[in-house]
Design a protein around this nucleic acid. Sequence first.
DNA 1: CCAATCTCAGTTAGACTGAGATCC
DNA 2: CGGATCTCAGTCGAACTGAGATTG
Lengths: 158, 158
Amino acid sequence: MPERDRHPRTVDPAAVPARLRSLASRLLGRGALHADRISNARLDTAGATRWQYSVLVTLRDTGPASQAALSDRTGIHRSDMVAVLGTLAQAGQVRRLPDPADRRRNIVTLTPTGRSRLDLLDRLVDEAQDELLAPLSPAERLDLVRLLQRLDNHHTTR
Amino acid sequence: MPERDRHPRTVDPAAVPARLRSLASRLLGRGALHADRISNARLDTAGATRWQYSVLVTLRDTGPASQAALSDRTGIHRSDMVAVLGTLAQAGQVRRLPDPADRRRNIVTLTPTGRSRLDLLDRLVDEAQDELLAPLSPAERLDLVRLLQRLDNHHTTR
DNA sequence: CCAATCTCAGTTAGACTGAGATCC
DNA sequence: CGGATCTCAGTCGAACTGAGATTG
């Protein structure tokens, strides 16, 4: 595995034109980059991915579900869900059983192993949020989250 | 060209677990997705890309520059810069001349054609920002931009 | 027959790596 | 020679498309 730079997509902050520096779309992109790097790095210490984490959280919080329902709740594409669940099932963190009432679909459930695995990942994700939002005060973090939620709601619900 | 859904990565907003819904890293990722889609769509009406726009803006605001300098200022990887400049040069929006003082490097300059092209793209980008930030008041837009700038500065400058 | 579900193979744009050629 | 610089050919994870198989 090749060594990864810690700060790729390098920019010279002082030289970025003002027009670009204040574009919300650019800032969101860069924020997502930092967030992805930090989250991936933390989860990687346990050999996990964000997709795995999203699925485990969703199973805990909304209960057993079909693969299609998990896709709707996590935003992970139906086609990608197959492999994610394959990995989680392989590791015994999830069980995939055909629905007796509708044999087209699988009912996915969290196992005790998955449950305790999730406790670990929750801590790692908390650490990642903290590292990501380090320069902001608690009140500012709340402000940011609320503004982003309103943006997302607006663009998600038509 | 295949028709693209307007809201891919579809989620059922009501069914997303609270833990995920308030994760800053997730919200940044979704915000970037919306921003990318909106910006790409606007620029595409003129057959342009965000990379082309970044390069044109940078040339206008910080003057002629080498490809390496453009990479540092835009965040576009030096390897990808080659193709972007190739396209812009092909369209006569940019001129790429070997630096007489150091013939390893190209000096890239904005042409009058590129200059007026940029005026058009600036308007399209303004429209995109407006569509992206539609649910927020002017004061809230400023808040969001400033919070995101502080995040980016923190993670960019070591 | 039509629709939903799961699966699989392939595509895309963006960010990256590594290596060669050229020049200082 | 050691370093930049530009170019080119790939790699990689994330999001997506389309099509087949199975079931309702």
